[in-house]
Every structure is written in structure tokens, then in C-alpha cells.
Amino acid sequence: MREIDVFIDTEEIADFFYQELIKRGFIPAEDEIRELADITFEYLLKKDIIAEEWDE
């Protein structure tokens, strides 16, 4: 199995969730959307789908 670099942007995730929820008839609050994006990021970390790296 090969390794690839993937960059996850929680702001992009938040925007995606916002747009999708609007399409489905929901009116999400901005803080709720940010929480969903953070939860998604944490889920990907927990499942070892991604690894968090810090720029120095």
C-alpha cells in the first residue's frame, strides 16, 4: 500500500456541511457547522485515515 499526502481543511469541511444541510432543508448555525467539521476531522484521526502533522 502506498502513502499519499492529503491536506484536510476544516473550513472546507464546514462549508461543505453547510451547503449540504441547506440543500436538505436545514438552517445550521455557524458554530454548529464548525463543530461538525472538527468532529469529522477527529473521526478521521481516530480511524487512522489521516495523521495530524504540524508545520514548524
Rank of each mutant, 00 (worst) to 15 (best):
M1W: 02
R2M: 08
E3V: 05
E3W: 02
I4S: 03
D5W: 02
D5S: 10
D5R: 04
F7D: 02
F7V: 12
I8F: 03
I8A: 03
I8R: 01
I8P: 00
D9P: 01
D9V: 04
T10M: 01
E11Y: 04
E12S: 08
E12T: 06
E12K: 09
E12P: 00
I13G: 01
A14S: 08
A14N: 02
D15Y: 00
F16S: 05
F16H: 03
F16Q: 03
F17G: 00
Y18T: 06
Y18M: 04
Q19H: 04
Q19R: 07
Q19L: 05
L21S: 02
K23G: 00
K23S: 01
R24F: 01
R24H: 03
G25C: 04
G25L: 05
G25R: 08
F26S: 10
F26K: 12
F26I: 04
I27T: 09
P28H: 10
P28A: 09
P28L: 07
A29T: 09
A29L: 11
D31C: 09
D31R: 10
E32H: 09
E32R: 10
I33W: 04
I33R: 06
R34M: 13
E35M: 11
E35D: 14
L36F: 07
A37K: 01
A37R: 01
D38Q: 13
I39S: 10
I39G: 07
I39Q: 12
I39D: 10
T40I: 05
T40D: 01
E42S: 14
E42M: 13
Y43M: 05
Y43N: 07
Y43R: 11
L44D: 06
L44S: 07
L45W: 07
L45T: 12
K46A: 14
K46D: 13
K47A: 14
K47F: 15
D48I: 11
D48K: 08
D48H: 15
I49M: 13
I49P: 05
I49D: 10
I50Q: 04
I50E: 04
I50Y: 04
I50S: 05
A51G: 09
A51T: 13
A51P: 04
E52H: 11
E52V: 10
E53F: 13
W54T: 14
W54C: 11
D55Y: 15
E56L: 14
